[in-house]
Design a protein around this nucleic acid. Structure first.
Length: 824
RNA sequence: GCCGGCGUGAUGGAAUUGGCAGACGUACCGGACUCAAAAUCCGGCGGUGGCGACACCGUGCGGGUUCGACCCCCGCCGCCGGCACCA
């Protein structure tokens, strides 16, 4: 141990030692409790940014803490390395995406090692490599066999700038999640995964995710969007065609005054043919088509529509009502036809108002402040049924049940559930992704490639122009093949998979990363799964986290893994800000981790980022704060350096004799307790670190006293190093060695605290008069309520305070306070 | 519009869940060391009034519950996320 804190040589030295000792390598060990600590793997964009540093620093504290607490810890890392940026770089530089990707990975691996994260590098997973995407394809074929993958022509979200289709989840406010271009609609034949088959389970099992933030669970619930209701068959007048609607409010069926059908509905063409309104209808359909999703779905937009000339018969009342086209009805949800109840639905209310349609009150709110004959908005709350035939007088919620039963028995209605969740569109018209291992044969249709022929390799003879669709189609060697079933000439699928498939099971591959026989062994996955702690950005709340849950359930169902939910506990870390806004190149407020590592070292970077804010909150970057963290490490280093000398050969056994001894010992034990609790129960690393700072301050104070107990100081020094080890591992290894130990601090048992040491003989308590603090006194700790009150009341200063006053009441909280309620 | 979250000194944030508001850090001020500076060590630091012991005010705003409220309840305001014509 050198006299001054030379972070550069210390960090290099210990990173080398860790690597040589292969310290972070783990294997399955049935004799130990396992802990799977996982951080979301990065996209290899080139260099680490502060968001990565924060994410991985948090994970590293947890992983190292669990190791010290005796767990067998799996802490892996890899790269989510297919995707558009590599392809764009290839177009720009004329090189292959693999070149760009692998050099970026090399750079980022180097930086991750520089940060001193405790990864088992032997398990590194890179999704662009053949040994990974082979199994991706293999899994895709299992989905196909289960009927969970299909190809279908549909209007899809198309990003003109990325020249590819997008999943619903990737469209944000009508724009491309990646590039921000306005998304258009295009009719294309595309591959889908049937995530909707799992909608119920994905929704119901959210309740089991006790270790997830409420916010993320709510977002997933909303996204899946289950709503239970009734399908009711209306009938088209003069034709008998069934016009089925979905409603959650069947109780308002007597209030139906019109019907609305989506302009894209396949029935529309037939409905309008030959009617006087046909031409107007066709014009309306055309203009609806021209609108973007943003225009179309804006709630502020005034309702538009067009009467079709047709009428529909209400099966409950026998009444006929006019049928309109209106673009506020979405083809993709429910049946694409809606019963119009202006009384009970705000959208229908606006529509009826605009087109002069009747509003029939069907529920009596029983309130004076609402005039149901002159509504200004729809009435959407509960009440008593009116104008509804034999249902009059019932509570409307009760009426829903009765109507469902009655209408069901009469054969024109049934209970149904609808979801907002759509099937997952997974084909992408891009090169740099996992090829979809399907072959089209004129005789056999779509056939999966044989397992023994996997992987279907990405061809290398492809032109990157960035213009055409599906670059793989330009390969001369790829497309033509033979049908895996009948052997006749056939063509391969030229689209690649959405990269979100790659990241939907990588956590399983980590359990058995080099398996050449299967994606992962069930036994090894059974040992490690589920992930005990998952850490990453909240931006993945729906996309990645929902898809991974879906994959895990499917793999569970086909007997490949033993858990139904992949992530037991989830921590979503906040963003790193500079000057109040997100670090970004365009704002020019980026602080690079590299810069900080070179100037202050990895330990300082880690410490600052953990100390500046609790992990879930946003973190405001502060250069001054970084310096403070650096100063603190220097302060600790000097303290241990001195104590290593002063306490050489002195065992960490001691007697606590003086008041100062007791105080140091108490603060030491408090620090152990707080750091332990703050890491394991609350993830409040900032307060954990502040407890250590208090200990350091106290050690400096104690050290300068005349009468010091070196055994006690020795004990404090050792525990101090152990407490800091998960946060700042390099400096702690150095100090641990400096204290004379040979084994790495990484493997040391976590320090324990003693309850006795935490206890104080006397405690400063507060005396309040009418809730205001008036006096502080020291009294013996651990008194009963009566003894406590007695002791405090008999104190002269308290007597003086209450002199001549009438004590109405005394509230005693032993060891804390006595509040006297006085009058006069 | 609906659903979350947040609002505390100059500043990042504490207050382990109803019991001393402002821990710890930054900034700032002062002292020690130094020829000097840096580094380091020690001390001060919510506001107003007072030489002072002390008094009053103070956790976005207005009410309430309670002996006691940053914390619980009601009504607002502001900021940040997410969802949004889902029938």
């Amino acid at each position: 141990m050198k006299e001054s804190y030379d972070f550069k040589s210390i960090e290099q030295k210990w990173q080398k030692v860790w690597e040589e000792k292969d310290l972070f390598h783990v294997t399955e060990d049935e004799s130990k409790k396992k802990f799977y600590c996982l951080e979301m793997f990065p996209y290899p964009s080139g260099k680490l940014h502060m968001g990565h540093v924060r994410n991985y620093s948090i994970g590293d504290v947890v992983a190292r803490f669990k190791v010290m607490n005796g767990y067998n810890v799996l802490h892996p890392i890899g790269f989510d390395s297919f995707g558009l940026p590599a392809e764009n770089a290839a177009i720009k530089n004329g090189s292959h995406p693999a070149v760009w990707t692998s050099s970026n990975i090399a750079e980022m691996e180097h930086q991750l090692r520089q940060m001193g994260f405790s990864y088992d590098w032997d398990r590194e997973v890179c999704t662009y490599k053949e040994d990974y995407y082979k199994w991706m394809q293999w899994i895709f074929i299992r989905f196909w066999e289960k009927g969970l993958a299909y190809k279908k022509e549909n209007p899809v979200n198309w990003c003109p700038s990325c020249a590819t289709v997008l999943a619903n989840e990737q469209v944000v406010d009508g724009c491309c999640e990646r590039c921000g271009a306005v998304v258009t609609k295009k009719k294309l034949s595309q591959w889908y995964l049937k995530i909707t088959d799992y909608a119920d389970r994905l929704l119901d099992d959210i309740d089991k995710l006790e270790g997830w933030p409420e916010k993320v669970k709510t977002m997933q619930r909303n996204w899946i969007g289950r709503s239970e209701g009734t399908e009711v068959d209306f009938t088209l007048k003069d034709s008998g065609i069934k016009m089925t609607v979905f409603t959650t409010r069947v109780d308002t069926i007597y209030g139906v005054t019109f019907m609305v059908i989506s302009p894209e509905h396949p029935l529309v063409d037939e409905l309008i043919k030959g009617y006087p309104q046909e031409e107007a209808c066709r014009a309306y359909i055309e203009q609806a088509k021209r609108q973007t999703d943003i225009e179309r779905t804006s709630t502020t937009k005034e309702k538009t529509g067009q009467f079709t000339g047709r009428y529909v018969i209400n099966p409950a009342t026998g009444k006929e009502v006019p049928l309109y086209l209106a673009d506020y009805v979405l083809m993709g949800y429910g049946t694409g036809i809606v019963m119009g109840v202006p009384f009970g639905d705000q959208r229908d209310f606006e529509f009826a108002t605009k087109f002069g349609l009747d509003i029939i009150p069907v529920i009596d709110p029983g309130r004076d402040d609402i005039d149901i004959d002159n509504l200004t908005a729809a009435f959407e709350a509960e009440g008593t049924m009116i104008n509804s035939g034999k249902y009059n007088g019932l509570n409307n919620v009760e009426a829903i049940k009765r109507m469902q039963e009655d209408f069901g028995a009469q054969g024109f209605a049934r209970n149904t559930t609808n979801f907002k969740l759509r099937d997952w569109l997974i084909s992408r018209q891009r090169y740099w992704g996992c090829p979809i291992p399907m072959v089209y044969c004129d005789d056999c249709g779509w056939v999966p490639e044989k397992d023994e022929n996997l992987p279907v390799l990405l061809p290398t003879d492809v032109e990157f122009t960035g213009k055409g669709e599906s670059p793989i189609a330009t390969s001369k060697t790829f497309v033509n093949t033979v049908c895996p079933r009948c052997g006749k000439p056939a063509k391969r699928e030229v689209d690649t998979m959405d990269t979100f498939l790659d990241s939907s099971w990588y956590f399983l591959r980590y359990c058995d990363a080099s398996n050449a026989e299967e994606p992962f062994s069930r036994k090894k996955a059974a040992y490690w799964m589920d992930v005990d702690q998952y850490i990453g950005g909240v931006e993945h709340a729906i996309l990645h986290l929902l898809y991974s849950r879906f994959f895990t359930k499917v793999l569970y169902d086909i007997g490949m893994c033993d858990v139904e939910e992949p992530f037991r506990n989830l921590l979503t870390q906040g963003m790193v800000l500079k000057d109040g806004s997100k670090m970004s190149k365009s704002l020019g407020n980026v602080v690079s981790p590299e810069e900080i590592i070179n100037r202050y070292g990895a330990d300082t970077a880690r410490l600052f980022i953990l100390f500046a804010a609790p992990p879930e909150r946003e973190l405001e970057w502060s250069d001054k704060g970084v310096e403070g963290s650096y100063r603190f490490l220097g302060r600790v280093y000097r303290l241990i350096y001195d104590l290593a000398e002063d306490t050489k050969g002195i065992p960490a056994v001691f007697r606590v004799e003086t008041d100062d001894d007791r105080q140091l010992n108490r603060i030491l034990n408090t620090a152990v307790k707080r750091v332990t609790d703050d890491i394991s129960k609350r993830f409040n690393f900032n307060t954990a670190i502040s407890a250590v700072m208090e200990l350091v301050n106290e050690m400096y104070r104690y050290k300068s006293l005349d009468d010091v107990n070196l055994g006690l100081l020795r004990d404090a020094a050792e525990k101090l190093v152990l407490l800091l080890a998960p946060f700042v591992p390099h400096i702690c290894e150095e100090m641990w060695e400096g204290l004379g130990f040979n084994e790495p601090v990484y493997k040391q048992p976590w320090p324990q605290y003693s309850e006795d040491a935490l206890a104080m003989d006397t405690i400063e308590i507060v005396v309040q008069i009418n809730g205001k603090v008036k006096e502080k006194l020291n009294v013996a700790a651990g008194l009963s309520k009566e003894e406590f009150t007695q002791t405090v009341m008999s104190d002269d200063r308290v007597k003086a305070l209450t002199e001549g006053k009438n004590i109405v009441k005394a509230i005693a909280v032993p060891d804390k306070l006595l509040n006297l309620v006085v009058k006069g």
